[in-house]
Design a protein around this nucleic acid. Structure first.
Length: 344
DNA sequence: TACACGTGGGA
DNA sequence: TTCCCAAGTGT
């Protein structure tokens, strides 16, 4: 029987994905950007974002010269915005410390913000054709099944074990194809539900397949229940229908993005209104509650729309409507709400 | 170690 | 509806 890696490489020739946007005219830069975008994100979701991003920032240097807002606007709707902030910071560091060239050693790569061991491994193998392991969600699932790893994937001992296995399987030849192949296998054959084991090139020695454990591995752990956070949004609306947004602080959810003025209590909301605008509470209009579920908590926001005259310039704010909504870094539900209110 | 960090889609 | 998760990293 051929080696695990050999079988995967041969399988990839026939069934692997070879025409994704970041696989055409491949460069370490494209691999890097795509790997960051694909963290916890599906290919179909990341694809349009990648195309726009590369169009706008075709090189590390062009990215390094951008403003944080220019980067965040291209990330708007994609989520996990620290990825965008770190990508931008790393581009600046690459230009200042590595002469604009993405480093090709594991130690230098993981020094850069947003690049951990797995992303570094992907950049090395896919971008530089250097022998380095990865351990993303796909690889974890494939290996957990193949080698019957029954521990909690969250546990450090299990992760350590999987890293060792991942490294031990690496071929000396065609490392880039192998890395792509094992990810493709996880994404298209060894899927979390309804895996297509009969199409798997390594099913002959897959422990889970042979022992009927495909549906039980990897071990599923119950997520703890989420809390619901209730907030109020103040939406001052100018004469032409435009809405005032405030820049959120760097840390915390939606860091650095533009959002509605947010308070927890009605009194704070009224204070923000009276302090900044010559408008009374009587013409405030309560809109339909906005529900938005994050991975770690649920958000319920009640938007309050108030017609105001544009007055003095308020710090860290901007007026926005459907015409300029695309030019800012906005969280998905904020963009959606603005469009609903300001669309003609 | 455990949790923060987004979003849209599938079961 | 509700839950889970998809190319993880930072703290």
């Amino acid at each position: 029987m051929k080696k695990f890696s050999t079988r995967l490489v041969l399988w990839h020739e026939l069934h692997g994905r070879k025409n994704l946007p970041w696989q055409r005219k491949i460069t370490p830069y494209k691999v890097w950007v795509s790997e960051i975008m694909l963290q916890q994100t599906q290919v179909v979701t990341a694809t349009p974002y990648f195309k726009k991003f590369i169009q706008e920032f075709p090189t590390v240097k062009s990215l390094s010269k951008a403003t944080p807002d220019q980067v965040l606007k291209l990330w708007s709707g994609l989520g996990y915005y620290a990825r965008a902030r770190n990508l931008h910071k790393a581009a600046k560091l690459i230009c200042s410390n590595h002469e604009g060239k993405i480093p090709s050693s594991i130690n230098e790569l993981v020094e850069l913000p947003g690049i951990g061991r797995s992303t570094a491994g992907a950049i090395l193998s896919l971008g530089f054709k250097k022998k380095a392991p990865i351990l993303d969600g796909n690889v974890k699932r494939v290996l957990a099944r193949h080698f019957k790893i029954e521990g909690n994937l969250q546990a450090s001992s299990t992760t350590k074990q999987l890293w060792q296995i991942s490294e031990s399987l690496l071929p000396s030849d065609r490392i880039d194809i192998y890395t792509q192949a094992i990810m493709d296998l996880g994404a298209t054959v060894c899927t979390k539900s309804n895996p297509l084991c009969s199409n798997c090139p390594v099913n002959q020695d897959c422990s889970a397949f042979k022992e009927g454990l495909v549906d039980t591995l990897p071990l599923k752990v119950k997520r703890k229940s989420k809390l619901t956070k209730k907030v109020l949004w103040l939406l001052p609306q100018g004469p032409s229908g435009e809405i005032l947004l405030e820049k959120r602080k760097e840390e915390g959810i939606w860091g650095g993005l533009w959002s509605f003025i947010e308070t927890e209590k009605k009194a704070e909301l009224e204070l923000a209104l009276s302090r900044n605008f010559d408008s009374n509470i009587s013409n405030i209009k309560k809109l339909k509650k906005v529900k938005h579920n994050f991975s770690h908590f649920n958000l319920e926001a009640i938007p309050y729309l108030v017609k105001v005259k544009k007055g003095k310039k308020i710090k860290n704010t901007v007026w926005v409507n459907f015409k300029n909504v695309e030019s800012l870094g906005l969280p998905a539900p904020i963009k959606k709400t603005i469009n609903q209110i300001t669309m003609p």
